[in-house]
Design a protein around this nucleic acid. Structure first.
Lengths: 218, 218
DNA sequence: CCTGAAAAGAGGATTTTTCCCCTATTTGAT
DNA sequence: ATCAAATAGGGGAAAAATCCTCTTTTCAGG
């Protein structure tokens, strides 16, 4: 047990991070864990992931400003595929859980858990395992046997995801097109494709769908 | 300094509470603070406030299930007027801040603050003072001269409430008018009034407002 | 390496809906 | 009597939504 396990925290609540550090250290009688760095959001996190040392485990929130947890994990899988991610969030929607599991995170737990569960999760992941909360396990279960049939697997492209976020604002499609450096016509194509895929008829219900499925935060 | 200062925590994130306790104790070199109890939400909090001992200071979140922070503080002012409340929340909307200040809380701070600020707030309040974050102070300032007039507690009429529900569907205004047995023009009046009152610019953000504030279920 | 089908990006044209501003009744409370 | 709401209308600009066509890119299979 010579090498410490390096941990990084990515969460936009400073106080939550600081408290978490205390909690981790508290249960860490053998001084195995070392908090390598903290980050306020995905952007700051990316910045800190360019130069070594890199963390072994990352505790990642989802709902954060600028770059959210989904984007951060996606980026991470591309650039640092070996780093283990433990998602800690308030979001327990099926789509949020599935999206994270699909990207191969090592654990998914709710923020409102007992300290013991957090420590169990950390130890499991440190020991190269996977730790899923009850809610996450259920979702996993239900989606294992029946993955293909019920066409609920609506795949959204990156651009579609980004568009959906803008669609929940007061911006017009023209303004969204400018933001995304694309033609309004392309944007309009995304809109139409999403209406079909998601079974909605207006931008209003598209926005509500996005909220319901954790694609955007309120 | 014989008597300890009893503190109660009301917040629905267990992990946040536990971390907070660590943070409070950490800065408490003289062992002045004692965590009397914790509560998951306003209901549980009320239950714990029926039998002594009572806390001196309550750290209160706003966004909680069942009974939220507003209700809890309101109840507290009626039943335990002497207990000091320090609001700790992610909400920095003017209306939230004002509502709490009007009810006479002793402090209002954002959850995303430095540990030092938390400790300063606690000490100030323990010393019988008031501690407002910068955001809260600004709101206070702006509302000192002109307190009565603009009742910002947005009152919605019954029809406006019903309209808002329909507005979160795929129905057009014409169809909503039919549903409500009113002229499209009347509906359009509701729309415009609500846009003004709620500070939104499109039906999309109106719908999101409705969801956010529990006017409609997702 | 080539190819052909699919997906992504973009344009034109048109209709429907949303949004905005201004005016006019009616009703009820002060 | 007056003032403020709720209801309703007209007219018009802006945005959203629908439908069709057209290139360019991408990528798997021959």
């Amino acid at each position: 047990m010579i090498n410490k396990i390096n941990i990084a925290l990515v969460d936009d609540h400073n106080l939550f991070r600081k408290g978490l550090i205390r909690l981790i250290n508290m249960g860490d009688t053998q001084q195995r864990y070392h908090i390598l760095f903290e980050a306020d959001n995905g952007n700051q996190f990316k910045d800190k992931m360019v130069t070594p040392p890199f963390p072994d485990i990352i505790l990642m929130d989802i709902d954060m400003p600028e770059v959210d947890g989904f984007e951060a994990v996606e980026w991470l899988q591309r650039t640092h595929g070996d780093v283990k991610v433990l998602v800690m969030t308030m979001l327990e929607s099926e789509s949020a859980i599935l999206r994270m599991l699909r990207m191969g995170v090592r654990g998914y737990i709710h923020k409102d858990i007992e300290v013991e569960e957090l420590q169990a999760a950390l130890e499991t992941i440190a020991a190269n395992g996977f730790y899923y909360s009850e809610a996450a396990s259920e979702v996993l279960q239900q989606n294992l046997n029946g993955l293909e049939r019920s066409g609920n697997k609506v795949h959204l492209s990156e651009n579609e995801r980004e568009f959906i976020k803008w669609a929940t604002t007061d911006l017009t499609y023209q303004q969204i097109a400018d933001k995304m450096n694309l033609s309004v016509k392309t944007i309009d194509g995304y809109r139409e494709a999403l209406f079909k895929k998601l079974g909605v008829k207006t931008r209003v219900t598209l926005a509500l769908y996005a909220v319901k499925h954790g694609l955007v935060e309120l």
